[in-house]
Amino acid sequence: MRKPLLALTFTLAASAAFAQSPKDAVEARQGFFDLLGAQMAVLAPMAQGKMDFDAAKAQTAANNIAALAKVDISPLFVEGTSVDDMMETHAKSEIWSNMDLFMEKADALHQAAAEMPDAAGSLETLQPAVGKLGGTCKSCHDEFRSK
């Protein structure tokens, strides 16, 4: 009775390992940005005074951001996964026609993210660091993210 289901599970896992569809790539990179966003959702309200500063929570979120930014997601930006190709993404085709600038924007994110763990100790240092990090989100969205 259970064998077909078991077999199906293996088959699914195997096929996932073999080929990453454009949809998988898009979902994976969106997962990455969701995870980044979840940290910003902790830090930004503190920096903006909408939430009381909590050093422990801030430190965790800041460490997470720094760790996440070390993940190289560039392989997920495969050809044929722009907003011109599919509905599920906001990635503009300019990413692929201007990859150098896209990578420059990514570098800015990496640098700002790397400064987060040291900045999370106090509200005074957190505020400018969140501003800088959020700024790297904006400047990349302006160029490469469709609305």
Partner: peptide, 8 residues
């Protein structure tokens, strides 16, 4: 507007 950058 929410430009999804958490600061603007």
């Amino acid at each position: 507007s929410d430009p999804q950058d958490y600061i603007n």
